[in-house]
Amino acid sequence: MVELTQQDYQFQHKHIFGIEQLSVADISHIITTARSFREISSRPIKKVPTLRGKTIVNLFFEPSTRTRLSFEIAAKRMSADTFNISASTSSATKGETLIDTARNIQAMNPDVIILRHSSSGAPQLLARYIEASVINAGDGAHEHPSQGLLDMMTVIDHKGHLDGLKIAIIGDIAHSRVALSDIIGFTRMGAHVHVAGPQTFIPAHISLLGATVCSDVRDAVRDADVVMALRIQLERQNDSLIPSLREYSRFFGVSRNLLDLAKEDVIVMHPGPINRGVELNPDVADGGRSVILEQVTNGVAIRMALLYLVLGGNKGNDGQGESR
C-alpha cells in the first residue's frame, strides 16, 4: 500500500452508508474537519454560508428526535435549506415503498438525503434510485456512522488518540447499530474493543470484527479507558432476551462500583437516550466521568463535516467521485 501524504488525500465518498466503508485516513479527516466546524458552534453568530443553496432532506422512517435535530442544526448552521419528511414504516408497508418515496423526493432535486430506516441496507437501496448523496442516520441493526464518528471524536478529545485504548461496550450489541459502527470504527483506529452483556445480546461471530467478547462485564471494564453503555430497548424483556430490566441492571448495569475497576481517568459514554437505572446508574450518568453532553455537541460538528464532505468539500463542490 502507498502511504498517502496529507496533500494527496481526498475525501471521495458520495454516500455515507457506514464506518465500514471508511479508511483510517477518511475517519481522521472527518474528525479534523468536524473540529474546525465545532468552532463555529461557539461563535455568537453560529452560521456560515458554506452550503447556501443546497437542499437537504431528513427522511426518517423511524421516530428519532435527537438524531434528526442534530442533522437539522448541522445543515442550518451551514445555511442549507432543510426539509423533514417523516414516514412511518407501517404506512410504507401499506403501499408506498421506499423507492416510491425516493422518486417523489428526487423530484425536489435534493443534494443530500439523511435516511433513518428500520431495514438494514435501506440507504444503499435508496442511493440506487436517487442522484443525491445519501447519509445513513441509522439503518436497522446495521450502522449509525455519524454516531460512531462522534464517539471517536469525543474519545480523542479526552485521550488525544485512539490506538491502544481499551474501549468497553456494554449492553445489547446484537440489536445496536451504534455498537456495530463503534466496534468497526474504534478497531480500525487501533483501539481494543471489549464487549459484554448477556449472551442473548452478543451477535454471532462478533469477534471476527475484532471485538473481544467478555462473559463477565467486570473483565470488559477492568482497566478500560472508555466505558460505553448502550441503551436497552425496554421491549427486549418481552422477546425472551432478558428476563427483566431489574436483573439486567443488577448484573450488567454500569455502576460506580463497576467503574472503579476501570482506569482512573475513564470516561463514560452513552448514545442516548438513557434509561437511568437500567443500563446506567444515575450517579454515573450524571457523574464527573460522563461525557454524554459532549457527545451531543460533537454530534452536530460531525454531521456538519459529513454534509460538507459528501457535497464535495474543498474540492470544488461537484459532489462527484464515488470511491466504492
Binding site: S120, A141, E143, R177, L180, P203, A204, H205, I206, L208
Partner: peptide
C-alpha cells in the same frame, strides 16, 4: 444465514 456476514450487515440470521 446467521453468522459473520449477518452480523456485519445487521441482518437477522437463520441458524
Amino acid at each position: 444465514h446467521e453468522g459473520e456476514v449477518s452480523t456485519r450487515l445487521g441482518l437477522r440470521g437463520i441458524p
